[in-house]
């Protein structure tokens, strides 16, 4: 129990709490006082032009980048600025990269096996035996992500869209509390985009999700609260219709 926690109801009731985060790289300010609060179970879309700091924000949450100042708390208890990637993943934050990143030389099944929540140490993996629970998780995720027929396929041979779904499936296998999804529909066909939106809505039923996306049709399809980032800070938030009507948002982003 930290002092901040007992005095700050927003923090206590949030899953993710970012307050006044600033990050600069060689003098370039990628984030300038970004604040964002995500409630447990919430799905949120983050939009913003290139360089608005979307990916840097994900880097801060997942421990890849340490902020120069500001507070980043998870579950009201864990200070994310003090933990590294593996520890943060262990807390239950999963991250999907912009470019689909799966293990190309492994089968779809092995990709999910490596992601499934289980002890991750050298000796646990060296001497670990197959267990039924893990198989069931994999079956369930293969069904959710519509990859059931591709179980034994080498991941490198999947289509772009299938790789994206596999990576989302790997996040699910981690059984995280929070999923960070970076541009999941970039480079997808319209049909694939619609299927991805459905997949994410399904996942959002029992996970908190943050989706970073450029594709407005897709964001509309998600139908969730939207936060607009601009030059490293929050410009506006609300429903997509609300933010689309905001003159500042139109000026920096939608109007172009």
């Amino acid at each position: 129990m930290t002092l901040a926690e007992s005095h700050n109801p927003t923090l206590t009731h949030s899953l993710l709490y970012l307050d006044g985060i600033s990050v600069s790289f060689d003098g370039y300010k990628a984030l300038r006082g970004l604040s964002l609060v995500l409630a447990p179970g919430e799905m949120r879309a983050i939009i913003g032009p290139n360089g608005a700091g979307k990916t840097t924000m994900m880097d801060v949450i997942t421990g890849k980048t340490k902020p120069d100042e500001g507070e980043a708390m998870f579950d009201g208890r864990f200070d994310l600025t003090k933990l590294d990637e593996a520890e943060i993943a262990g807390l239950g934050i999963g991250r999907k990269f912009q470019k689909p990143t799966v293990f190309e030389n492994h089968t779809v099944e092995d990709n999910l096996l490596l992601a499934t929540k289980a002890p991750r140490g050298v000796f646990a993996t060296l001497f670990g035996r197959d267990d039924k629970g893990v198989r069931r998780t994999i079956d369930r995720i293969l069904a959710t992500t519509r990859l059931g027929g591709l179980r034994a396929r080498v991941a490198g041979s999947l289509s772009h869209g299938q790789k994206q779904w596999l990576e989302i499936g790997m996040l699910l296998a981690q059984d995280p509390k929070l999923l960070l999804v970076d541009e999941p529909v970039a480079g997808m066909t319209d049909a694939e985009t619609a299927a991805t939106a459905e997949l994410l809505r399904e996942i959002a039923r029992d996970h908190s999700v943050v989706v970073v996306e450029h594709d407005m049709t897709f964001v509309r399809e998600l139908g969730v609260k939207v936060t607009v980032l601009h030059e490293g800070a929050v410009l506006a938030d609300g429903s997509l219709d609300q933010v689309s009507a905001d003159p500042r948002v139109i000026e920096v982003y939608l109007g172009r």
Binding site: E85, A86, R95, T101
Partner: peptide
């Protein structure tokens, strides 16, 4: 094949 993916999956690479 994908070191950073492993880190974000929670492995101590």
């Amino acid at each position: 094949d994908a070191e950073s993916r492993m880190r974000f999956l929670g492995y101590r690479v």
